[in-house]
Design a protein around this nucleic acid. Sequence first.
DNA 1: CTCAGCTAGATTTTT
DNA 2: TCTAGCTGAG
Length: 726
Amino acid sequence: MNELLSKLNNEQREAVEHINGPLLVLAGAGSGKTRVLTTRIAYMIGKKGIAPWNILAITFTNKAAKEMKDRVETLVGADANDMWVRTFHSACVRILRRDIERLGYDKNFNIIDSDDQKSLVKECLKELGFEEKQFPPKSVMSEISFAKDNLLTPIEYAQEYGVDFRKKELARLYALYQKKLKTANDLDFDDLIMLTVKLLHENEDVLEFYRNKFRYILVDEYQDTNKAQNELIILLAGQHRNLCVVGDDDQSIYKFRGADITNILDFEKAFPECRTIRLEQNYRSTQNILDAANNVIKNNYGRKGKKLWTDKGKGKNISVYKAQNEHDEASFIANTMSALSRDGYSYSDMAVLYRANASSRALEEVFMRKAIPYRVLSGLRFYDRKEIRDMIAYLRLIKNPDDDISLKRIINTPSRKIGKVTLDKIAAAAEREGTSLLRAIGSYKDGLGQNVADFYDLIITLQEFAKDNKISELVNEVYEKTGYRAFLETDEKAQERDENVNELINGAANYEEANEDASFEEYMDNLALISDIDNYDEDLQAAIFMTMHSAKGLEFPIVFICGFDEGIFPSMMSMASSEDLEEERRICYVAITRAREILYITCAKSRMLYGKTSGYKSSRFLDEIPQELMDITDNTPRVEESWVPKTSTFNPYEIPKSSLTSYSAPAPKPVSNKTFRAGECVVHKKFGRGIIISATPVGNDVHYEIAFESVGTKNLLGLYAKLEKA
DNA sequence: CTCAGCTAGATTTTT
DNA sequence: TCTAGCTGAG
């Protein structure tokens, strides 16, 4: 134990040894936060004799939870298993499974994900006669989520915001949505937190039980908590007050999904007797990199203030490359990487970080062409894949026959010739009987046709199968018996999809091995709460591309940050409010501090975005990095003054077509050999004869507006329209 | 019921 | 420009 402590610096050691009473650890990037947390737990158990079952450690991701548990286990051994190391959501599921009946819910609830949420919202919109244009499902979802994050029931939400006409309608939607969830015995992610808080609020004995159990609480990534999560923690720790929260206000980058930075900023107000410790010594990066990060982040107002330092030395300067366009930018990155690789660096030591996933395209093109190994940490995650979600929907329906959302998803996938008409009939029957869709089918199946009856029997058979077979066998059985395997064979992406389902089956088998006595129910909870298979294989010899958000918590010897342009980063959408801009700056701080040794920053004078080429000014964040830390290479050709608008507060601006250069751009597409002018008569393969109203050159193509004799006016592109002279 | 064709919209993402 | 998701014709 003493040996463990001796590996820590003074601040770290203090954070480990301060066990009683509230503690706020402001842990800068790369300051050994995880080491502090795990050592602290080991210290509590090994030195202070605190029982593992009295400890609750909360993280945000399963990955972090697993890592923490593993590391504690190597320190203290099997004792670690008696400790709760869980994500917020999985801790809440466990609490709710025990006592949710107190809130009038069924113990056997299912957890739905955002995709199901969306279809449910759409249903509610339809039922209340709202237009999706007026209430986009996405924004309805985030409003409901906002309400739940703030612990507001539909009624409370209406009271609070009902004066606003739109919000009044949203409250109705929220109420209906909630009613539907409850009938289907489903909870969404936000319910898990909100209902747990409600449970503890309304049931003194339950609260007592957990307060007594969790005498020591640790929370990781505290800057990412929302109001409901914070409330939960405060409730649990409110009595014994042995609460240690670890976080970095400068790395709060999840406001858009409800994270409330004031939780960490006001922690000292909520717990006035708290001890605050700053971890500012960085063990990751060179001083130049840290200076860049420090100088950027110091421009934010809403922060506690920290200054990272290292004893590693200054290291290399930051290389900045100003590219002509995104292709040039990508080529620079590719060429630099291949040079570094010749110098003995491994591609797996290198990462490219960008603000938005769309930026990976230009990079991929170039890397593919130059045959440099790369991987994209993509937006589409394993459990979001259609085939996986379909399989899970079957499993959910098998587990919970009332799960209408899942039933609707798969009743006709693969096709069983059960369409909208039949489904409406079933829904009407269910409505009449006040029951769920599957149960309605059960009572009326003779009247609904053979297809529906077969589907019903299929689910019942699988339910039986689930009772006395292993989970992996059940998943396999579902794959076979539902016809899904055969269905995939007809798909052009068949092989990949089949592999994904097999991966799911393997995953189930692994789960059985790791949790011998695990039930089907537990497996399903695990499925619902796990975000992705943590299959980011660090040993693979390839450079990795990812968003700055996904890079949080990771580090690489060599980092390229691309798209350092006003409007790209900071993102256009953030430029209206200073709060959002500060969040962008925190993202920048996160991105810079991912680098251990070498940092490259690139921007481009012009880029194609959404099919339009615009000019860009380099990011304001670049101006915030001291000149002396940077070596700048400018590959932008000198151009006449008129090129850049003099009063260029408005960015990005449209580039005059004439000044576009084709430098290192991909070969232009073949220009259509026939072009037409306004007034000419043309013939289209499908639309027949028409007259050209206007012809506008767009890049190397021409955009035509054509009035056809039979189908009216259409907008067509010359390259694709295959027009003939009439 | 299905599938082709068109339109609108397009940060960031965990659970 | 790309693509997901809706609409209307078969």
